[in-house]
Design a protein around this nucleic acid. Structure first.
Lengths: 223, 223
DNA sequence: TCAACATTGTTGCCATTGACCACATTGTTA
DNA sequence: TAACAATGTGGTCAATGGCAACAATGTTGA
């Protein structure tokens, strides 16, 4: 310990681990490369061998985040039931749980800082996360619990609602009395939105709002 | 111009305007107070009279963002129809439009940097934005287009879905072939989720997934 | 064995940044 | 017009991210 070898052994991992700790403690923009180096006990420039720039490190951090998120959600499927609703519920709980436990990391993951020409690995990790939902939707379609249609077009509203809820929770803008039933309500709304189409003839005579709404949307001029 | 008066006249506004320009050009974390001062032609320390710290300036920027967002969405209601679906659609279009035009600003607005003890003005601005949705929901309930229930519990899924879609679009993670019908699909899903409850007897005999799902959710152990 | 070579870490340096202080200039008010 | 508040300036400081030259440690092949 007093005589640390010249070579650290696994500096990249140590950097990522310590960076995530700092992320958790003080947020992403308070992350200092030099402080990182001090905490690990290496020189400030040692980092550059593994992450050339600060953005590179943040990208790598986001990538590990996506991977762990994918793992957590995949793991949630093990103990859950087989219903689409049950599987989606388990995934949603895992997602929210991960988000609450790693708020700053999640914010970093979905920050626009990466998008333009992020590393392929980061893009791939994010893509796998998105594809999980598509597979879930597909399974729901096969079992008849989800209405038919292009996978992406059905999955997008599902993902958006969940992602939006997570964003609201993380940003701390959710009143506390809503946090309790919040996810329940979001899930119910999502499931409702996924349901196979009802027979229009069986509708209640309440002015059929949806068809007119859809018409208004897709007939929107100028788009 | 060569002889700028000692007092700028309206430095706060100039700082906010220039800051927003930089935000648009280079993102929030590339914003430099000194560069701001240089662009305006003021000494670096002049800022401190109006925004003591950098975070204060960012908070103020976020606040103006919420105000302008609220204005844009409110304005969208002028030319829209009276239906709940039409009003929500107009608001959603305005929201997405604002988000696309002010991506970095929106990211800043909903960043978790503010949450803990943000300025009351910022909190109030964000709150007004949230309340717009509640009023919209309430109107929908009065007209019978939205099912009954606590305003917040119905509004949260609506807001989450919209907010999530905006987040996906901004972060650039939306495949281009989805962007076109993306908002249409999200809106349809939201409206579907808002619909008044169907008479359970009129359901199709497809194993009634929703009721079992809801049961699974609310009966979730450990919560 | 050992001599090139690549990998990894170090030291020193630089421009930039955000915050702070004492001071200067201007506006306001009694 | 004298006191005071508001606003802007110059200078200083520690900290930061990046860079280049150098040092120590592995690796490899003759």
């Amino acid at each position: 310990m007093t005589n640390r070898p010249y070579h650290h052994g696994d500096l990249p991992s140590a950097l990522l681990a310590q960076a995530e700790q700092t992320l958790r403690d003080k947020g992403a923009d308070q992350l200092s490369l030099r402080e990182l180096a001090r905490a690990i006990g290496v020189s400030p420039a040692a980092r550059s061998r593994h992450f050339k720039t600060k953005q590179d490190l943040l990208d790598a951090l986001a990538q590990t985040g996506f991977e762990r998120l994918a793992d957590a959600v995949a793991a949630s499927q093990e103990g859950s039931g087989q219903t689409f609703a049950q599987r989606l519920d388990a995934a949603a709980r895992a997602y929210v749980s991960f988000a609450v436990d790693n708020a700053a990391l999640l914010e970093l993951m979905f920050s626009a800082k990466h998008s333009p020409q992020a590393s392929p690995a980061l893009t791939a990790a994010a893509h796998r996360w998105w594809e999980f939902f598509l597979e879930l939707i597909a399974a729901g379609q096969r079992s008849g619990e989800v209405r038919n249609g292009p996978l992406e077009r059905i999955g997008l509203p599902v993902f958006a609602a969940l992602h939006g809820y997570v964003g609201v929770v993380i940003s701390g803008m959710l009143p506390h009395d809503l946090a309790e039933h919040g996810l329940d309500d979001v899930m119910a709304s999502i499931l409702h939105g996924c349901e196979p189409q009802q027979n229009p003839a069986s509708r209640q005579p309440t002015a059929s709002p949806r068809s007119s709404a859809t018409g208004a949307i897709s007939a929107r001029p100028g788009h």
